[in-house]
Design a binder for these strands. Structure first.
Lengths: 126, 126
DNA sequence: CCACTAAGAATATCTTAGCCT
DNA sequence: AGGCTAAGATATTCTTAGTGG
């Protein structure tokens, strides 16, 4: 389980454009020193700042604090939703589904029929 | 969007056994006054306490702070992902999806190839 | 009993300036 | 430049004691 500091540092440097602590701080009206202290877990940002961080990186506050991927898992999503999230996290399939979501009903239906065939074929094997 | 204070108060009183601020505080080694201040948003709990609250009520920290139902929606998931969940909430497709999630990689790959064909065919129509 | 307020003590944070690599 | 440390100024929080419904 990663600390908030580790998360922040990873996010600051994990971008295409790695930022210095100073640059990073400017985004949130914080001094370079403050950022450093966050990363070393010597200080903690207030809630407002925390939310800004979360928003900027498009992650949840739970993720920032606890390092857990899906805080949703803990609370308000159904198991099915959780499975979906897990499933979608696979980059290949993710793209696949995005396409499907934008496609006409008939095509999806067609795909589903083909899927039936695949599954039946598997049954016959056994 | 509800405040942290409102959330806490609602959770404290929303249980089968409503608790007084004093009783509630005892659970987390906090004085009754402190709980009251939280609920009136005059003070904010530190991260540790916040996590205890979240754990005790089985909610996410994001939910406590922002009042948003799906913290996943807010952060972990992109808008596209949110659309997908919407998409698959269709019961028919939902079943389809569940099967896929439990199927071997090769079958999914096969399905994807068939999908490519469908899409190409559509292109030729135009 | 329950919740709220006040005030002081205790903690924690933010910045600037300086230091090191 | 980039990052870290120190120290004072600032700001916030927690508790106890007291007030009122």
């Amino acid at each position: 389980m990663k600390t908030l500091g580790e998360q922040l540092k990873a996010l600051r440097l994990g971008q295409e454009t790695k930022k210095s602590q100073k640059e990073f701080g400017k985004l949130f009206d914080l001094s370079e020193s403050t950022i450093g202290m966050y990363e070393r877990n010597e200080r903690k940002p207030d809630y407002e700042t925390l939310q800004k961080f979360a928003e900027h990186f498009s992650v949840s506050i739970d993720y920032l604090i606890t390092g857990k991927k899906s805080n949703a898992a803990q609370s308000d999503l159904s198991n099915d939703d959780k499975e979906m999230i897990e499933f979608f996290s696979n980059p290949k399939l993710n793209l696949f589904f995005k396409e499907m979501a934008d496609s006409p009903e008939e095509q999806i239906e067609e795909l589903r029929e083909f899927w039936e065939i695949i599954k039946k074929r598997e049954l016959n094997k056994k």
